[in-house]
């Protein structure tokens, strides 16, 4: 198929960006979206132009590196997948595809489609861990039974890949789904209880400091999340936060 691509080009974080049109031809419907981008870039390199910079790595939907906003949707027009798992059979011959970076005040553009997600790192550093040293003599892994239900729910929360689609999809650029997922994972497990209060307070404080917006329960984040992280995690975080602040 032949396609027109409208792509956001921006030289660096300081430069003013703009949409630029490109044509690609003979795209196979079996290609992944990023393989289509490879074709474009090979074309650009061969004609001496600078290729489009975009983040990608594992190309199997788990590293969370790829981050495009395609035709107005984070990771494009399919559900439950990342951009690298999007295939060209979702598009038709002659289509015009708009490709932008994830946009949020807390995700400044570095170059073209590459954004800076260090704000997510700092939130995790504020409390996204259990304080246990590596020693080889922590207690036996089976000494605390954990109900299958709690373990499965914690696992569902923990599958977040930290891509930032939730933020990009939210009209308020809120990071509540991302933070809620991490808070929930530990809130559901006995290991995380001792520092639960500090964790939720510190992570939420850092989230606010980074300039993410508030949650207004629209639910766009849940729809666009490639891993299907549930809104329940936001509710759980709010409960954790409320009980912590009420206790003082």
């Amino acid at each position: 198929m032949n396609l027109t691509l409208k792509i956001w080009r921006q030289k660096d974080s300081q430069a003013k960006g703009q949409m630029v049109d490109y044509k690609v031809t003979e795209i196979s419907e079996h290609m992944s979206f990023l393989e289509m981008m490879d074709v474009l870039n090979e074309q650009l390199v061969n004609s001496g132009e600078e290729p489009v910079a975009f983040d990608h790595d594992c190309r199997e939907g788990i590293c969370g590196m790829c981050s495009m906003y395609i035709n107005g949707e984070a990771h494009g027009p399919d559900r439950g997948i990342t951009t690298c798992q999007l295939h060209m059979r979702m598009f038709n011959d002659g289509d015009t595809i708009t490709i932008e970076p994830f946009r949020a005040a807390a995700f400044p553009v570095i170059k073209d489609l590459v954004v800076d997600r260090m704000s997510f790192e700092r939130i995790q550093q504020a409390g996204g861990y259990i304080s246990v040293n590596t020693s080889g003599n922590t207690q036996d892994a089976n000494s605390i039974p954990i109900s299958k239900h709690a373990a499965d729910e914690a696992m569902d929360a923990a599958t977040c890949i930290g891509c930032g689609a939730c933020v990009a999809s939210c009209k308020n650029s809120s990071a509540m789904l991302f933070v809620g997922a991490k808070v929930s994972q530990y809130a559901l497990l006995p290991q995380g209880q001792v520092e639960a209060a500090d964790r939720v307070k510190n992570m939420v404080a850092q989230m606010d400091l980074e300039g993410f917006g508030n949650c207004t329960n629209t639910g766009a984040c849940e729809v666009e999340c490639p891993k299907g992280i549930s809104l329940e995690n936001i509710a759980r975080m709010n409960r954790e936060y409320l009980s912590t602040t009420l206790k003082g």
Binding site: Y129, I130, V132, T134, S135, G136, T138, Q139, D140, A141, N142, P145, I146, S147, K148, A151, D152, A154, M155, A158, Q185, Y186, L189, Q191, G192
Partner: peptide, 19 residues
């Protein structure tokens, strides 16, 4: 395995709550 469980890694468990 002990270390990872202490860190909160959600390994699969059976209905008795064990790994």
């Amino acid at each position: 395995i002990d270390q990872c469980v202490a860190q909160g890694v959600p390994f699969a468990r059976d209905y008795g709550g064990l790994l």
